[in-house]
Simulated assay, not measured.
Amino acid sequence: MGETNIFKVLADKQRRDILVMLKDGRMNAGEIAEKLEITPAALSYHLKLLKGADLIMEYKQKNFIYYEINATVFEELILWIGQFGGGRK
């Protein structure tokens, strides 16, 4: 997925909130929905977009699906943004 889609996905505050929650480690959908106070259907939509942009990964463990940040994509995004010379004079 290209940077354009990543920026579209990151434009939504709830999706950014999900990423902030996941920076501390894996969480399952129930935990995320409870903290955000949103319905499972709404959360499913946000998780689908985050997964589609490769910003999160999912892991199945028994009856639960856990989500965590895909740090590789963020590292690539930082490198891409860095090409615009932040800090150069």
Rank of each mutant, 00 (worst) to 15 (best):
L50T: 03
A53N: 07
L36H: 06
E68M: 13
Y59A: 10
R26I: 07
Y67W: 06
D12P: 06
E31V: 02
L50F: 02
L50Q: 01
G2E: 10
A53G: 04
R88C: 08
L50M: 02
W80N: 11
G2D: 15
D17W: 11
F84H: 09
L79R: 12
H46V: 02
K89C: 13
L55I: 03
V9M: 06
K60L: 11
I32E: 05
N5L: 14
S44I: 00
R15K: 12
L43E: 03
R16C: 14
E76I: 03
G30M: 10
I38E: 01
L47W: 01
M27K: 14
D17K: 13
E76F: 02
I38Y: 03
E3K: 10
G85N: 12
R26M: 15
T39F: 07
I65H: 06
L55V: 03
G25H: 06
G86Q: 13
E76C: 01
L36D: 03
G82K: 09
A29N: 12
F7N: 12
A41T: 07
D24S: 12
K13C: 13
I38S: 01
G82Y: 05
A33M: 05
G2I: 13
A42P: 02
M27W: 06
R15T: 07
D54G: 00
G25Y: 05
P40N: 11
Y67D: 01
Y67E: 01
I56N: 00
E76S: 07
A29I: 10
Y59N: 09
Y45P: 00
K48W: 06
H46F: 08
F64I: 03
I18N: 00
A42L: 08
G52W: 11
K35A: 09
A33P: 07
G25E: 05
G25W: 06
Y67N: 02
Q61S: 14
L77G: 03
L47Y: 02
F74P: 00
A71H: 13
R26L: 10
K35G: 05
R15A: 02
I18K: 00
K23H: 09
G85W: 14
Q14M: 09
I38R: 03
E34Y: 08
S44N: 08
F64Q: 15
L47E: 04
G87V: 13
P40G: 09
V9A: 07
A53K: 02
